[in-house]
Simulated assay, not measured.
Amino acid sequence: MSRIDAKFAQLRAEGRKAFVSYVMAGDPDYETSLEIVKGLPAAGVDIIELGMPFTDPMADGLTIQAAGQRALDGGQTLEKTLDIVRALRKVDNTTPVVMMGYYNPIYSRGVTRFLSDAREAGIDGLIVVDLPPEEDSELCIPARDYDINFIRLATPTTDNARLPTVLQNTSGFVYYVSVNGITGTAAASAAAVGPEVARIKAATDLPVIVGFGIRSPEAAESIASVADGCVIGSAIVAQIADGKPVSEVLSFVADLAAGAHRA
Results as ranks from 00 to 15, higher is better:
Leu62Thr: 13
Arg109Phe: 08
Arg113Phe: 12
Val128His: 08
Ala161Asp: 15
Val177Phe: 06
Arg89Trp: 07
Arg144Ile: 01
Tyr102Arg: 04
Thr170Gln: 12
Ile123Glu: 03
Leu139Ala: 01
Leu131Trp: 04
Leu78Asn: 03
Ile151Leu: 14
Val91Tyr: 07
Leu72Asn: 05
Pro133Glu: 05
Ala87Val: 11
Gly101Thr: 06
Ile141Gln: 00
Gln168Val: 06
Gly101His: 02
Val177Gln: 09
Asp147Pro: 02
Glu120Asp: 14
Asp145Arg: 08
Met100Ser: 10
Asn160Lys: 12
Tyr103Phe: 15
Ser108Ala: 15
Thr112Gln: 10
Thr112Phe: 01
Gly68Gln: 05
Ala154Thr: 15
Gly68Ser: 11
Gly125His: 10
Phe114Glu: 01
Asp147Glu: 14
Ile84Gly: 04
Glu79Val: 13
Leu115Asp: 00
Arg113Glu: 15
Pro132His: 08
Ile151Met: 04
Val128Tyr: 09
Thr81Tyr: 07
Arg86Tyr: 04
Tyr103Val: 10
Ser137Gly: 03
Thr81Leu: 13
Val98Trp: 04
Tyr103Asp: 02
Ile84Gln: 15
Pro96Cys: 07
Ile148Lys: 00
Pro132Arg: 11
Arg119Lys: 14
Arg109Lys: 15
Ala121Gly: 09
Val177Glu: 13
Val177Asp: 10
Gly172Trp: 02
Ile84Leu: 14
Leu167Thr: 02
Pro96Val: 03
Ser116Asn: 14
Glu134Thr: 13
Gly172Gln: 14
Asp117Ile: 11
Arg119Asp: 02
Phe150Asp: 01
Leu131Pro: 05
Ala71Asn: 09
Thr94His: 10
Ile127Gly: 09
Arg86Gln: 09
Gly181Ile: 06
Thr77Gln: 12
Met99Glu: 07
Gln168Lys: 15
Ser171Asp: 08
Ile141Pro: 00
Asp124Ala: 05
Leu139Lys: 00
Leu115Pro: 00
Asp159Val: 09
Glu120Val: 14
Ile148Ala: 00
Val85Gly: 10
Asp117Cys: 06
Leu167Gly: 01
Val128Met: 09
Val177Cys: 12
Leu153Pro: 12
Glu135Gln: 13
Val85Ala: 08
Ala66Ile: 05
Tyr146His: 03
Thr77Ser: 13
Gly125Arg: 06
Thr95Leu: 03
Ile123His: 01
Phe150Gly: 01
Thr63Leu: 05
Thr94Ser: 15
Gly74Cys: 06
